[in-house]
């Protein structure tokens, strides 16, 4: 079974070792790292993170729109590593996903 390393760049560079079968969220929980989550099946964005480098399989993602996928957002509850990777995690990685449609884009 392959395992990969993921570095959480905004968690003091903490490194997590994740098997290919495990979601990144489940691996973080098993390691005692508290990351945000909600639905746990890819339809909400509470666990969204930004892939800075590396390869992730996340075909079960429902909640991300094409432009958000293109901006390298991943949902950790349904994301599996396919290479060593680097992620920005937590709410501070997510603000680009939250836009008030009435307010002009700055």
């Amino acid at each position: 079974m392959s395992t990969y390393r993921v570095e959480m760049v905004n968690r003091d560079g903490q490194v997590l070792v994740v098997s290919a079968e495990q979601s990144i969220l489940a691996a973080a929980e098993a390691a005692g790292i508290a990351l945000p989550f909600g639905c746990r099946y890819g339809v909400c964005i509470t666990c969204a993170a930004r892939l800075i480098a590396g390869k992730v399989e996340h075909s079960r993602t429902v909640a991300l729109k094409p432009e958000q996928l293109a901006a390298d957002f991943v949902l950790l509850c349904v994301a599996h590593l396919r290479s060593d990777s680097r992620l920005q995690v937590g709410l501070e990685s997510q603000w680009e996903l939250y836009r008030n449609p009435w307010r002009p884009t700055i």
């Binding site: 909600g38 639905c39 339809v43 909400c44 964005i45 429902v62 909640a63 991300l64 729109k65 996903l97 939250y98 836009r99 449609p101």
Partner: peptide, 11 residues
């Protein structure tokens, strides 16, 4: 549907 409103409001 949850998959619509969970991620946020989109016109």
């Amino acid at each position: 549907a949850p998959r619509t409103f969970y991620p946020g409001f989109d016109l």
